[in-house]
Computed example of a mutant assay.
Amino acid sequence: MAVVGGGVVGLTCALELARAGHRVRLLTADPVERTTSAVAAALWSPYRAFPMASVLRWAAVSLEVLTTLAGRADTGVALRPGVVVHRGGGPDERWSAAPGRRPASPGELPAGAPAGTRCVLPVVDTGRYLPWLLAACRAAGVAVEQRRVTRWDDVPGDVVVLAAGLASGPLLDDDSGVPVQGQVVRLADPGLTGWLLDEDHPEGLTYVVPRGTDVVCGGTAVEGATGTDPDPAVEAAVLTRVRALVPELRDAPVLSRAVGLRPGRPAVRLERVGSGGRPVVACYGHGGAGVTLSWGCAAEVVALV
């Protein structure tokens, strides 16, 4: 069988299918370091993914797996405390399963934030995690081939799992996908002990995710934008927001910057379909929650296969 897509969802599906006893070939258009997954701040966060009931179920499975992986030094996964800022409407149900969840104290909130939730969540350093996941696939017997798939005739195998993000829809004549552009800037880590997520910041989506050697700062969520070159003006605005919320970052130098296109869709598509005379399991449209949903969706893919 074949898995199309070499980002975090495709890799996780391939690994779980191989562990379940299937012979798997993974086709990926890009090396792991050039996938959209490589740009992600990758804090466990059910962001811009629907429907919520399914998303929370898949996310809970991933939370358990990632928590286990955090006990291994080679995975790039760490459990870190942090604060989700709430700027109205009360606590968000997405955080109901977060370990150690409690209301943030005034001293734990950034300036101007009215309320928040304090919890401990997995933070995934994708620069280490994706190569670990790829190595785990190969160790499990997955054959990995770098090849861009544009038609079904290019895909070997009697069963296909389609997990290629934004490239998935065209293969199934599905035009419901939309890119959601995200820009990040990575700063040197001055020794931050926790992350910060402020989705409803009045000046735009803002997050600060320390990973030990760097801090991923963002961000943007521009629906329909397709550019992948960092915009200096956007970066300046992001840095203004994050440095106001986290003063420790005011003198932190910029290490790198990146732009990724999240695979937006009205709902995650995870179902059996038929195409090219073969069974196909579609698994795409994870929005900004690929890492967060990956293990839960992979388990369901295995069941569907």
Rank of each mutant, 00 (worst) to 15 (best):
C119P: 04
W152V: 05
L69C: 06
L261P: 12
L270I: 12
A49Q: 02
L121R: 09
A49K: 04
V234N: 01
A70N: 03
E300G: 10
A53L: 11
G276F: 13
V39M: 09
A98H: 02
L11T: 04
V273P: 08
V161Y: 08
A299T: 13
V281A: 07
A303F: 07
R272P: 03
L15A: 09
R94C: 02
A139F: 07
L239G: 00
G182C: 07
E248M: 10
R72H: 08
A115F: 04
A252N: 12
G277R: 04
L11M: 10
L69T: 06
V208Q: 04
G165P: 02
A188P: 04
P106R: 11
V268T: 13
G287S: 01
A78W: 01
G276Q: 12
D200M: 11
W58I: 01
P210R: 09
V8W: 00
R19H: 11
A40N: 03
G107K: 09
V178T: 14
V83P: 00
D189M: 10
R118T: 11
A73D: 15
C13A: 15
R34Y: 11
D92M: 09
D173S: 14
V178F: 08
P230Y: 00
A139V: 03
A136V: 07
H286S: 15
Y47N: 00
W132R: 12
S62M: 04
V77C: 05
A111V: 09
S176D: 14
E16R: 15
V273N: 05
L79G: 11
T150D: 12
G90V: 09
C217M: 02
V124Q: 08
V32H: 15
P114Q: 02
L15P: 11
T36N: 15
R250V: 13
G100T: 10
E300I: 05
E33P: 08
V246P: 06
R241I: 01
P46R: 00
P99N: 02
M52S: 13
T36S: 15
R269I: 09
V39S: 05
L205P: 08
T35Y: 02
A42V: 12
V4D: 03
S54H: 12
R19S: 11
A289Y: 03
P81T: 10
T220F: 04
C119D: 06
A252E: 10
V268Y: 01
P263Q: 05
R257L: 07
V305A: 15
S45N: 15
T206L: 03
D153T: 15
T206S: 10
L133V: 14
G5K: 03
V281Q: 04
V24N: 04
L133P: 12
G169V: 02
E300F: 02
T67L: 04
A258D: 13
T12A: 14
V124F: 05
R151Q: 09
V160C: 15
V268N: 08
V159G: 01
D153R: 15
G264I: 03
L255P: 05
T75G: 04
A188D: 10
P190T: 15
P266D: 06
P202M: 03
P156V: 12
D175A: 13
V208M: 05
T126C: 15
S54F: 09
G100Y: 11
D154R: 06
W44R: 07
R272E: 02
A267M: 05
P263E: 03
L293Y: 03
G204P: 07
W58G: 08
Y284A: 11
G141M: 00
D200K: 02
A78E: 14
P210D: 11
T220I: 01
P31S: 10
G177N: 01
G21Q: 07
P179M: 00
L205Q: 01
T206R: 02
